[in-house]
Computed example of a mutant assay.
Amino acid sequence: MRLSKKAAGIVAAVTLFTVAAPAAAAVASPRSTCYGGRVCLYAGYDYNRGQVDHWRDFVQDDSNLADNNWLNWDFSNSWRSMDNDTSSVRNRIGCSTTLWQHPGFTGSHSTFTHNSNDGMLANNAVGNNRASSLDIWCR
């Protein structure tokens, strides 16, 4: 009887973790989505559709994307640097954001207003696979 109570406790804990874990991760943005209050960057064109799902979301400036790695679709670390590797962006932060070509917010840049998307950064001044810093600015 004692063993079955212990087993029931383990099953309850596993069930609780399984239910709670996705809720904690729901603020992040794999599979082409981008939740409100975030700027989402994607390694592939068209928000990674049909490609390896490397993505990352931000809620504040980042002066050097080389310090970050892409996340995989399952929220695990891809160990692939984000520096000079962004191909598309979604802006849901509530204000404008700028992608800069070089660290420290320098070089060519492209600004995206709230609720804007760009599935092909090659058409912008910052260019494809050239972003090295992200500036989020609210007036």
Rank of each mutant, 00 (worst) to 15 (best):
N84R: 11
R56D: 06
S81C: 11
G50C: 02
W100I: 10
P103C: 05
D83R: 14
A23Y: 08
D85V: 06
G37K: 07
V27L: 05
A122P: 00
M120K: 07
F58I: 04
L41K: 11
Q101G: 00
V14K: 02
D46C: 01
C40P: 11
A23I: 09
V89D: 04
L65H: 01
R31I: 09
Q60M: 06
K6S: 13
K5I: 13
A25M: 11
C95K: 06
N64C: 06
A43G: 07
L3H: 10
S81M: 12
R80Y: 12
S4N: 12
D83F: 08
S81F: 07
R90Q: 10
R2G: 15
A122W: 02
D61N: 15
C34A: 11
D74Y: 14
G36A: 13
D62T: 00
A7F: 14
S29W: 09
D83W: 07
I93L: 08
V89T: 02
V39C: 10
R130E: 13
G94I: 04
N68H: 12
P30S: 10
R80N: 12
S88E: 00
V52T: 11
L134G: 02
T113A: 14
L134N: 03
A66V: 04
L71G: 06
W79L: 11
V89I: 15
G119D: 02
N72A: 13
L65E: 02
A23N: 08
C34N: 12
Q60S: 13
A43L: 07
G44Y: 03
P22V: 01
C95S: 12
N64R: 04
A125T: 08
I10Q: 07
A25R: 14
R80Q: 14
H54T: 10
A28K: 14
N124M: 03
H114C: 06
I136F: 01
S76G: 15
T15M: 14
W100D: 08
W55R: 09
I136G: 04
L41V: 15
S78F: 13
V126G: 02
A23H: 07
N129M: 05
Y42E: 11
S87C: 01
D74S: 01
G127W: 01
L71D: 11
N129R: 05
G107M: 08
T113I: 05
C138T: 03
T113V: 09
W100H: 14
V14I: 00
P30Y: 08
A26P: 02
P103L: 04
W70N: 12
Q51N: 10
W100N: 10
L121A: 01
T113Y: 11
A26N: 10
A7T: 15
A122Y: 03
D62N: 10
L3R: 14
V126I: 05
V59I: 11
V52G: 07
T113K: 09
S116N: 00
G119R: 01
H114A: 11
A43C: 08
W55L: 04
L121V: 01
G127C: 01
S87K: 01
L121E: 00
L41S: 10
W100G: 09
N91K: 06
W73V: 13
R38V: 05
T111Q: 12
H54G: 06
G44E: 11
S76F: 15
N84I: 05
